[in-house]
Design a protein around this nucleic acid. Sequence first.
DNA 1: AATGAATGAGGCTTCATTCAT
DNA 2: CATGAATGAAGCCTCATTCAT
Lengths: 212, 212, 212, 212
Amino acid sequence: MAPSSVAFPRRKPTQERSRATVDAIVEAAARVFEARGYAHTTTNHIAERAGVSIGSLYQYFPNKDSILVALLEHHADDGARLIAELAARAEVEDWSLRAVLEHFVEALVEYHLAAPRLQYVLLNEAPRPPAVVALRHQLEDRIAELVSGLIDLKLGGEAPRPDIVAWLIVHAVEGLAHEFVVHPPRETNRDTLVREVVTLIEGYLTRRGETN
Amino acid sequence: MAPSSVAFPRRKPTQERSRATVDAIVEAAARVFEARGYAHTTTNHIAERAGVSIGSLYQYFPNKDSILVALLEHHADDGARLIAELAARAEVEDWSLRAVLEHFVEALVEYHLAAPRLQYVLLNEAPRPPAVVALRHQLEDRIAELVSGLIDLKLGGEAPRPDIVAWLIVHAVEGLAHEFVVHPPRETNRDTLVREVVTLIEGYLTRRGETN
Amino acid sequence: MAPSSVAFPRRKPTQERSRATVDAIVEAAARVFEARGYAHTTTNHIAERAGVSIGSLYQYFPNKDSILVALLEHHADDGARLIAELAARAEVEDWSLRAVLEHFVEALVEYHLAAPRLQYVLLNEAPRPPAVVALRHQLEDRIAELVSGLIDLKLGGEAPRPDIVAWLIVHAVEGLAHEFVVHPPRETNRDTLVREVVTLIEGYLTRRGETN
Amino acid sequence: MAPSSVAFPRRKPTQERSRATVDAIVEAAARVFEARGYAHTTTNHIAERAGVSIGSLYQYFPNKDSILVALLEHHADDGARLIAELAARAEVEDWSLRAVLEHFVEALVEYHLAAPRLQYVLLNEAPRPPAVVALRHQLEDRIAELVSGLIDLKLGGEAPRPDIVAWLIVHAVEGLAHEFVVHPPRETNRDTLVREVVTLIEGYLTRRGETN
DNA sequence: AATGAATGAGGCTTCATTCAT
DNA sequence: CATGAATGAAGCCTCATTCAT
């Protein structure tokens, strides 16, 4: 069956030039979404910014949403790669639990700070066609899985329901990082935030290790 | 904050009927947003659902955003009232820390579960004119303040930076409650969630009480 | 179930002004289709010609096709009424077979000559969404039925398969009248055409009355 | 008629491969028109179906209309050849009037049944640039002439205005055959149709032979 | 000659908002 | 004050055609 019309480019970019065009469009979309917000971005804005005709845009993307999806895919890949690298290094270099948490939290905060306005737009303003929702959940699940692995590594298998633990950690950290970027509490810098969040998670893991 | 032209109805509804109309419109907006999503809701939909002509709608609301603002105000009031009542009961009945946390987390989860789709729409799809942003931050600050008070009550004044602690707690819980409603982890019911989140916060508070 | 979105106006015109607008749009459509052909007529052309905003047009017609359908309905009604009146007079005034045929053929030629260019556009250029096809067949069936009645009246019930006979007559005459308007043979005026067509049909009916 | 820029390919296909390409395009056009209707057929569809790049298509056809014209020319040639063969056989084998009519009607019905959907599209949906109109009239005139010759052969020269008679016959039969394909009357098969139409024409010719 | 990426005018349609009744 | 018909700017998208490679 044909792929969902929303999520996939119309034709596979086989040629060099095609790929350049697609990339230019996605890149332009990121910038324009960031500058104007999703609702006030038109496909013509994007095409113009990409230095491409509107026709070319629609040669590769069947509609506005699909551009968003492509952009989110890029971002999701970035995020997943970030965590995967972290997990790899943690294993190789045998980090302590605290070190793992510090790096993890720092990475997520970094990730959100990198393009706060874009994050904001993607997470808060963009519409949520099924493809987008699925994508986001996929990313979250990927990350949760990695985190689950990390925990296992550190706490051994004794903790019950590591999936829930991972879920809690991932979303608590995600939510806090995002909120910090969007509306930070007064007189709180980034390092303070990271320290507090690490404390939060560490405390949780310790408790879980003991009690349950 | 100065009343922007966006946030306030054109004329004060002094008469009985006027208030009823305004309420009907806000109520209708909630239902239609919930059913169709923000982007696909038109002012005519809202008017129709409210059983009011589009002309009447614009008698009371200068534009579409102002309806959203009014609706958010309703919600914000609900949320703040919820927490305020909790705080009052906690003080009067002298709850334990664990009890306070349990009630607090439960209340927030409840709040999000009450109208998940609407929450979702309001939090994620709706545009963010300044008035809306301000409103949201106001609510969060109000809640954080209440929580700050609760903590103070339980841990005494020894904990440094209670504002940050409160901020962390509020947004961690908010984020987790919201995420739970939107995309819960497999095989996890509500009670499990509440228990885990309480553990998370409790662990954090304990640590903070000790270390810092 | 909701009526086909193509064939029906969006909202029932309850008010005076509404009906006037709808009529103006249909009337304008007839004129613009006639002047520019279907493919080169835009909805904006129609609205402009009707002295109405494009928004008003879409208040009453969900899309371009639906305007065509409305126009065809008008025409179909005109055609059916024409034949019905003829049938009534034929019965009351007890016309001869030849007289019936003459009037019938004349009426159809008249009908096609009235707005030849429009006929042309409607019959030949317009797209054929199911609604249009159904409409046309309906009209043809209505007319065939009336003709069937007329024949019965004149030839008595002896002719077998009066339905086929009526079908043949209606479409032969229709086709000839239409072709005559679009591309008449050299040096042939309208009276000649009518006389010949009547002869054609008369000969057929006579034969059928005898043989079959 | 002067060769309009619309009706002729840009360059004469002198080479083998060129002719093959042109044929493939025309053939593809027939199939795609049939499958999607004229309005929904794009030049890219045609090129793709022909297994040719869009650039190549425009190498041989200056615009979309010219493809339609080429296709109609093919069809017209087929139709004319059909009738010409019939006329030749009729003369050589000295058919009776009834036999001539039977073959003639049958051939036309056959012609329409062969590719009803394509007929439909070409006759009803396609635009009518002057070149197309001229082409169609040419074909009709060619056929009418042939029929005129046939009649002459059978009735002798006594009938006045044989041109009108031929015109009437051709278009009555054409119209009925087309209508039969598009929307046949209930419970009527092809043989019945042919018999009836022959009766119709025969009756007409007989009458005309007598009276006028 | 062939390819297919690129072009962009222009069509259809939506919907927040106004205003005559 | 209520009504709902009317407005029109502006957005999304198509597709015949061009042109660099």
